[in-house]
Design a protein around this nucleic acid. Structure first.
Lengths: 133, 133
DNA sequence: TATCAAAAGATAATAATTATCCTTTAAGTA
DNA sequence: TACTTAAAGGATAATTATTATCTTTTGATA
């Protein structure tokens, strides 16, 4: 079990029980939207306020402790910040997976054809996962 | 000037003046969010309802006449449906441009490593555009 | 030009998110 | 270990975004 207390503090975020629980949910689930996160959190903290969820998600985003993933035809989900990666989303079961892809060639195409200097990329591939095929 | 009356009808959408104006705004601006679209529309139709904007945007999405583009740190924008393409977004000036990129290699990587069958891709590259460099 | 389903406009209702205010607490310091 | 205080949590009001409802108007077809 990872000690997220220190990781939160490294991001200058106080390690409150609520934040540790949010972190635990994100770690366990990988990707989760606000509504589902709230449902899971309320089981551990029966009186947690939805405002606490929003305030923490926004603060964690500002501190780059977590990241938002915008998906087609779905609510945004949140994940713990990790190495740069893309996402594959199954249109049948809705599962979301991280995937490490080499986008250097693509980014080269862009810099050549458009004189555009890419600093970050957001790629979501939609399709059918191995379980649904 | 393209005749969008027939194109709307091909998508089984009645060609109302409001829809033709929305189409014109999308054609002229390329990408626009709800708020900006409403501001532009109200200049032509001083009494247009915001509900009409939402209803038409949603209907046009359902009929694949337009598409939503989800951007990092910004509201979604909408564009007329065209050939498959990606987007480059300038983090300095906010400009959004279409770009045709060959993602076949990347999609191949996915199918090999994850047995995932990709049917569509959403790629947004953020960075610095030629004007801001 | 008459008919009618569909669309527009006005606005109420709902959903999503943020702000406010008071109480509690994490974390540094004596 | 207790003290201090800025920050965080909880409750809830306020705001913003989106959708639903209902009545009037209109595009498209006969």
């Amino acid at each position: 079990m990872i000690n997220y207390t220190n990781i939160l503090r490294e991001h200058t975020l106080k390690a409150t029980p609520q934040r540790l629980a949010i972190t635990d949910v994100l770690y366990t689930n990988g990707h989760i939207n606000i509504e589902s996160l709230y449902e899971k959190m309320i089981k551990k903290f029966t009186s947690i306020s939805l405002a606490t969820i929003y305030k923490n998600i926004n603060l964690m985003l500002e501190h780059s402790f977590i990241q938002e993933v915008k998906l087609p035809n779905a609510k945004s989900v949140y994940e713990l910040t990790k190495e740069t990666h893309s996402h594959i989303v199954c249109t049948t079961c809705g599962s979301i997976e991280d995937i490490s892809l080499d986008l250097n060639k693509v980014i080269m195409q862009v810099s050549e054809s458009n004189a555009f200097h890419t600093t970050s990329s957001d790629l979501v591939l939609s399709g059918i996962c191995i379980h649904c095929k």
